[in-house]
């Protein structure tokens, strides 16, 4: 990262999402999958939005998707530094309920982003905060 130490906002890891952040720490992206109707749910809620079952399992997804849309941000908050950064809404293949995940790009020039581009979820260590964060990189 450009600015050291890392000063961008980070998730507070709310107790109900602990399995998610434990998964991210071992480089696995987990999404609540409904054991009753089979639907995936993102962002996580306590119950399935399709059938309202609370019988959900944090389940590893394939870990790739396509760019639904994006922006290259030239004027970000001060803690995001001066270099433009890529912000992507990544559409995952898991269905039937659509899964769209917001994230930043890494390992590429954000100007190379385009709609429909295939990307994979990757993991970035933030040592100063003892945190692992998910990012999107070209597949």
């Amino acid at each position: 990262m450009e600015i050291e130490p890392y000063l961008r906002p980070l998730p507070m890891k709310e107790p109900q999402n602990e399995p998610f952040w434990e998964g991210i720490a071992r480089h696995e992206f987990l999404v609540p999958k409904c054991n009753n109707c089979g639907d995936w749910n993102w962002v996580p809620y306590p119950a399935c939005r399709t059938c309202l079952s609370e019988d959900l399992t944090w389940t590893k997804i394939a870990g790739h998707g396509t760019v639904m849309t994006f922006s290259v941000v030239h004027r970000g908050p001060p803690t995001f530094g001066k270099e433009p950064y890529g912000t992507v809404l990544l559409e995952l293949p898991e269905r039937p309920r659509s899964l769209v995940i917001l994230g930043n790009t890494t390992g590429m020039n954000p100007e190379d982003l385009h709609i429909g581009m295939r990307m994979k979820i990757v993991y970035e260590e933030i040592p100063s905060e003892d945190f692992v964060m998910y990012r999107f990189a070209p597949a």
């Binding site: 961008r8 906002p9 980070l10 998730p11 507070m12 890891k13 709310e14 999402n17 998610f20 962002v43 996580p44 941000v73 970000g76 908050p77 995001f80 950064y85 912000t87 917001l102 994230g103 930043n104 964060m133």
Partner: peptide
Amino acid sequence: VKDWMFLVHG
């Protein structure tokens, strides 16, 4: 911030 807060990603 809250876990899925958009400001995490600027």
